[in-house]
Structure formats: structure tokens, C-alpha cells
Design a binder for these strands. Structure first.
Length: 426
RNA sequence: GUGGCUAUAGCUCAGUAGGUUAGAGCACCAGAUUGUGGUUCUGGGUGUCGCGGGUUCGAAUCCCGCUAGCCACCCCA
């Protein structure tokens, strides 16, 4: 009625404040560096995509059922298609679309791509889980060789280890393909059906809807049945079994450690064969997955493009930041220009410009006392301050103070940049 | 989407048998130092007690609703 609440960020959204940004960028840049060193090329794709792009690949998963941010139609009578847009929940589908639409399928294959940016899912927020979250993606499109599965794993592992993360483990599985998975799921259902009444309610529902999920249920009462359940890796068709064996042998050859887990599955339906995930022990159970990926040979066809094999990885930047050892951000050398009395704004601004030839310069135009300005400069971690009152301004000079040593001397404006640059390099 | 816990200053928190001007540490601002920081000293509370309503002479405290955060699910990065 009277006063309204101040506006806050929407639920599940958060800001990355200046203090955090350095760490954030570091994580992102480490990904780019790892990708670049393996010859991956950067690509940017839209955050908004047609809902159909997401629905075709997502199938009947929760992500599509209830977690998609659909964009409200603009109300333009001629543009009813506007009602069919959504914020992307992941990047892979968009990258594959761009691969065809941009003619990358005409280049020599495979094409190695990397991208990163915000994704959106209408989940219940929790620590390490936001409605807008950031992913780093690797995709290798256009070649079925298991060697690319191994390479993608190697690059994503390189990303995580270059950040100095400890306690990261790789989990590996194969979930077969369109040929061997359906018969396996049939077996799995047959195994579980007689046990149905002894499963917990969610699993009773899963039995027919999504039997793979029975395998990673955490409910106590469902545990006893898992051990004897048929394992997908025992029922792979010949080509899938060979591909899986090759991935493992390549990982072994590269001395990449992993744990086989027949219960590892993926949320999105287009995955085939290799699936993998990086876990971090120190993070809570709900957000211990730092990233995951796998082969998605069925995706291109699901989008209406020619059947095209591909493999990829998506890493959660938010969670990697969370898991990263906090490093003290390195403050860049700076000079603060402090006019010691009012009326020197123009001169101070000019001194700032001269300094910027060599290092970033901040000009303090505030009216507070010089000692307050010094305090502020000191707290900001400035390397130098350039103090100037009317008499110095008249001589076109400043008192340049080295904040580390406390040494101070008068320096003419036109020598400032040189003097600071000189003592930086020494 | 389901269930549970929580919400007091910028941060971490104290404050309930309901009682008058709501506190601490850190942070922040100012001064000591009318031209010199990081140490020290002095001063300053910077707050619609998450929001809305109810009970009461009186609510940060009790009740209801809402919102947000956290935790466990669902699912996933």
C-alpha cells in the first residue's frame, strides 16, 4: 500500500560481484585455454531457441516437462511463432543446429567446437544450483570414432586439473544405442516387475516410465535389488561393446583414471554409448557433479538433420567455481590521483590521462580530506598515489608516493608514466 | 513440483515467561593529522527486526498467509 519492498533479484538468480569475477573469469578462461590447445574453435549460439529444438531432443524428461522458461508472446498478431521460443536449458542442441545451419557440416570432419554461457532451468534453487547457471561446453561433431569420446574426456579433465581441483573423480559408463538399449530395458523391466510392490513409490512409477533411473535410486528399500539387476554393459551389442572397450583402452593409455559405474545414466534421451561425469567429493551430494557428457549420435536426426555422430561435454562453471581453491585475486598495479584541495578537477583528470599511458589510473574527485583519500587508495591496493595541490599543479608536477615503500618525491607530469613504468619493471 | 529448517545492521550473529530509546564483533564513515594510507586512539548505528495481516494496553518475540534462502527429494551442471 504505502511503501513497496525494494526490488531484489528474481528467485534462483544471483549476481557475480566484483570480488568473485576474477575467479569466475579464471575458470572460464581455463576452459577456453584447454579447448584451444586441442584445436577446438569457439562458437556463440543464441540463448533463445525455438521450443521445438528443446522438445525434440529432451523427449519426456523433467527438463522439458517443467523446467523450461518459455518466452511470452509479444502479442504481435502476425507472429504467432513468437510464442514458441524458450531460454535454452543447455547448449548442445543449439550448437548442433548451428553446425548444420552455418554449414560447418561442409567442412572437413569432425568439427571441434567450444562455447560457454548462461543456461536456464526452472528448478528449485539450492546452493550450487541456480535457475540461471553457466556451462562450459565441448562438442566434437561428425565422427563416430570412440577416440573422440576419449579426447573430450581428456580435455574436460585437463580443464578441471588446470584449476588445481583436488578430489575430482571420473565416472564412466556406456548406455548402448538404439539397437541394444531397448532390449536391455525390457530385461530390466522384467527383472523389476515381480519386485514392484517392494520398491518405493517413485520407483514404482519409474519402472515403466524410465527404468534406467531405478539404477541410481538412493532410497534404502530399493538398494537390495540393484546388485542382481541386469547390467547394461553386459548387454551391449557388438559395436557398442567394441566402442566402449576402445574408450577404456584409450583412457588407460593416457593414464586417465576412472571408475566404471553401470548405474550412471543421463537425463537427456539423445545420449548413446559413452556417458561420463566428473564428481567432486567435497561438495554436497546435491551438487557434486561438476560436469558430464557423452556421445549423442541420435541428436542431429532428432532435429531433422542428417544422421550425424557427435560427442560432447558440459561443465557447470558455478560448481567448479564453488569447488575451486580460493585464490587471492592479484590486484593490478594502479595509481590513484589525489587532488589535495577543491578546484583541481581538470588538472587531476589530465594527470590521470597521462598516467594511463602506462598503468590504470583512478582519479579521486571526492571532497573528503586527503587522509581519507589516502585511506581509500591504500585499501584499494593502489601501487602509487599522485598527490597534487595548487602549487604543484602550477608547476605541472605531483608528489608521487610509492605505497609499498612510502618513498615520495616530486615528479613532473610528463615524466609520470615513465617513472612508474620504470620502477614496475625493476 | 514435494517435505523440513530458517529470516534481526553491509557480514557473522546475540536478544522470546511479549514491556518503554534493539545490541556485539568485523566492515563502513568521520576526526586526531586545516597536505599524507595500511598501525593506534576517539566518535558515529548506518536497522521498515524479510513482507502483509491477526492476537494484545503493548509484538523482533505468539498465530496465519506470502516471499526468499538453506537442506533432503524430484531432476540435474
Amino acid at each position: 500500500m504505502s511503501r513497496s519492498q525494494p526490488i531484489r533479484a528474481a528467485r534462483g538468480m544471483r549476481d557475480i560481484l566484483p570480488e568473485q569475477v576474477a575467479l569466475w573469469r579464471g575458470v572460464e578462461m581455463a576452459g577456453e585455454a584447454a579447448a584451444r590447445s586441442y584445436g577446438y574453435q569457439e562458437i556463440e549460439v543464441p540463448i533463445i531457441e525455438p521450443v521445438a529444438l528443446i522438445e525434440r531432443v529432451g523427449g519426456d524428461t523433467d527438463v522439458v516437462r517443467k523446467e523450461i522458461y518459455r518466452i511470452q508472446s509479444h502479442g504481435d498478431a502476425s507472429g504467432e511463432r513468437e510464442g514458441h521460443l524458450a531460454l535454452r536449458p543447455e547448449a548442445t542442441a543449439g550448437v548442433v543446429r548451428a553446425y548444420f545451419q552455418g554449414g560447418l557440416n561442409q567442412l572437413s570432419q569432425p568439427v571441434r567446437l567450444t562455447t560457454s554461457g548462461p543456461m536456464f532451468r526452472h528448478d528449485r534453487p539450492q546452493a550450487g544450483r541456480y535457475r540461471q547457471f553457466y556451462q562450459f561446453d565441448l562438442e566434437v561433431i561428425g565422427d563416430p570414432s570412440p577416440a573422440y569420446d576419449a579426447e573430450v574426456i581428456e580435455v574436460s579433465r585437463q580443464w578441471l586439473s588446470s584449476l588445481g581441483l583436488a578430489g575430482v573423480s571420473l565416472v564412466l559408463n556406456s548406455i548402448g544405442d538404439g539397437r541394444c538399449r531397448p532390449p536391455y530395458l525390457q530385461r530390466l523391466k522384467e527383472y523389476y516387475r515381480p519386485l514392484k510392490t517392494r520398491l518405493h513409490p517413485d520407483c514404482q512409477r519409474r519402472l515403466e516410465e524410465n527404468p534406467l533411473r531405478l539404477l541410481d535410486c538412493k532410497e534404502e528399500q530399493c538398494q537390495p535389488f540393484k546388485a542382481a539387476a541386469p547390467r547394461i554393459t553386459d548387454h551391449l551389442c557388438q559395436p557398442c561393446a567394441e566402442a566402449f572397450a576402445e574408450v577404456r583402452s584409450l583412457l588407460d593409455g593416457a593414464a586417465i583414471e576412472y571408475r566404471l559405474d553401470a548405474h550412471l545414466v543421463r537425463g537427456l534421451d539423445y545420449y548413446t554409448r559413452t556417458v561420463f561425469e566428473f564428481e567432486h567429493a567435497a561438495l554436497g551430494g546435491a551438487q557434486n557433479a561438476l560436469g558430464g557428457g557423452g556421445r549423442y549420435d541420435g541428436l542431429a536426426a532428432a532435429l531433422g538433420y542428417p544422421d550425424t555422430p557427435a560427442v560432447g561435454f558440459a561443465g557447470g562453471i558455478d560448481r567448479v567455481v564453488l569447488a575451486s581453491p580460493l585464490s587471492e585475486p592479484v590486484k593490478p598495479a594502479q595509481v590513484w590521483v589525489l587532488p589535495a584541495e577543491p578546484g583541481l578537477e581538470a588538472e587531476a583528470a589530465r594527470v590521470g590521462r597521462l598516467c594511463r599511458a602506462e598503468i590504470p589510473a583512478v582519479v579521486d574527485f571526492s571532497r573528503r580530506s586527503l587522509s581519507a583519500k589516502m585511506r581509500a587508495a591504500g585499501r584499494a591496493g593502489s601501487r602509487w598515489v599522485a598527490i597534487m595541490a595548487a602549487d604543484e599543479a602550477q608547476r605541472q608536477a605531483v608528489q608521487l608516493r610509492d605505497m609499498r615503500s612510502g618513498d615520495q618525491r616530486e615528479v613532473p607530469w610528463d615524466q609520470l608514466a615513465v617513472v612508474m613504468a620504470g620502477s614496475l619493471s625493476s
